[in-house]
């Protein structure tokens, strides 16, 4: 589907590691990516205060392991919106030198980054680790709806029901890949979708 070259807007992620030159550390994570935070908390801990904000999901809940490691530095939220609310409060009170870490699915990572950006934090200041699922959020360029958890190269837009080709072109601000109507030239000519983002 793509032309066999790397589209440079597609982000490259790394596994999180502590930035020891710091004044404080704030970690946000959801679901499956709780595992990354567990791994991080097993490494040599930095000297500065650590705060962990975690939103368990139906697929994965690492709260128990996290509590045993982080104790009262851990805050678990039932709803994702509550996590963002708390994160926002922390951003407001934090000083320069506070290191920010995000672990989660791709959309979550860029929500964290965008929220931080509204407090003057630059994209490069946030460390990001993608959870094991490569499922994509897809922005429909026609009706501007974002559909989540897309694992196939062709997806049906949850807004306008068009069949979208999922491109590799990625917008960090939207946290989503571009989706373009695949049968625009020849309506009805939709190839078989393949599972490519497990």
């Amino acid at each position: 589907m793509q032309h066999g070259y790397w589209i440079r807007s597609k982000p490259v992620y790394h596994s999180l590691s502590w930035q020891h030159r710091a004044q404080a550390h704030v970690l946000v994570a959801n679901g499956e990516a709780g595992r990354s935070i567990v791994r991080l908390l097993h490494q040599r801990l930095p000297d500065q205060p650590i705060t962990v904000l975690y939103h368990p999901t139906q697929e994965a809940d690492y709260s128990k392991s996290l509590v045993s490691l982080a104790g009262e530095n851990l805050h678990v939220f039932k709803r994702e919106s509550e996590l963002w609310h708390r994160f926002e409060q922390i951003l407001q009170q934090s000083v320069m030198g506070t290191r920010l870490y995000a672990a989660g699915n791709e959309y979550f990572l860029w929500q964290a980054t965008t929220l931080a950006a509204s407090h003057g934090v630059l994209s490069g200041d946030v460390m990001r680790e993608q959870a094991s699922s490569l499922a994509r959020s897809v922005y429909c360029v026609h009706c501007k709806t974002i559909s989540h958890r897309v694992t196939t190269n062709i997806a049906i837009c949850t807004g306008c029901q068009r069949h979208l080709l999922v491109r590799d072109h990625f917008s960090r601000r939207l946290g989503a890949y571009m989706g373009l109507m695949i049968d625009a030239e020849e309506p009805g000519n939709v190839p078989e979708a393949e599972e490519v983002y497990p």
Binding site: Q19, R21, A22, Q23, M96, G97, T98, L122, G124, D125
Partner: peptide, 10 residues
């Protein structure tokens, strides 16, 4: 700034 953890871009 570096020791305090300020990112370079700031």
């Amino acid at each position: 700034a570096y020791e305090l953890g300020w990112p370079d871009a700031h």
